[in-house]
């Protein structure tokens, strides 16, 4: 890869870009089903702008990152190492994992927290080809009545929600858009 992409593509103004990105990430995590825009980074392919920005906002040398499948390229590794210093790990130990839903693999390999510390669980950043407010019906904390989100799967998210208060939390990214699904959300398929 060229030095230019490895060292470039980070935040132009880190405190402000990260603050904006976090507010969007917090809003979608607090309001499942809502979609926000996050920009600020230009990550190497195949990472989306939203996934790259989320990684720069939340990851540092204290968090283990798992690059799943096609996201695990030399360019992504070097970009992430340069901009965040986050150590890479396998799925079992990861604090954050990024990749497509197929590449992320079985959910039961990720950390779901412990009964006394349910926060010690993985956050999965799921790269999607599209992200819309249609599909699975969401209810629970943060949702007034019902919300809808185009989830890549339903039974596996339902099983994750059944582990509550344990379980993984998810961000969905598509270009510069993000949405989220915390473990507290109930998911139903509506015909």
């Amino acid at each position: 890869m060229s030095a230019q992409t490895q060292f470039s593509g980070g935040f132009q103004n880190a405190p402000v870009d990260a603050a904006h990105a976090f507010r969007a990430a917090m809003t979608v995590m607090a309001r499942p089903g809502q979609i926000r825009t996050v920009v600020g980074s230009v990550p190497p392919t195949p990472l989306s702008v939203a996934a790259g920005t989320l990684l720069l906002t939340l990851c540092d040398p204290e968090t283990k990152v798992h690059l799943a499948g096609k996201a695990d390229t030399g360019a992504v590794r070097q970009w992430l190492a340069f901009h965040t210093g986050a150590p890479l790990s396998d799925a079992v130990e990861a604090d954050f994992a990024v990749g497509t839903w197929q590449d992320l693999g079985p959910l039961d390999q990720y950390r779901i927290g412990t009964a006394e510390y349910p926060d010690r669980s993985a956050t999965l950043i799921v790269e999607c080809t599209n992200l819309h407010q249609v599909g699975a019906a969401l209810s629970g904390p943060g949702v007034k009545g019902k919300a809808y989100l185009s989830l890549p799967d339903i039974p596996r998210f339902q099983r994750n929600a059944a582990l509550y208060p344990l379980g993984c939390d998810f961000f969905f990214t598509c270009d510069d858009k993000i949405a989220a699904l915390p473990r507290s959300t109930q998911i139903k398929l509506e015909g």
Partner: peptide, 21 residues
């Protein structure tokens, strides 16, 4: 500093995912 904010932000996100914990 930014690293402190990231640590706090990660805690806020987990807090929102498990309300009241």
């Amino acid at each position: 500093d930014e690293q402190t904010k990231r640590m706090i932000r990660r805690a806020i996100l987990k807090g929102l995912a498990v309300p009241g914990y």
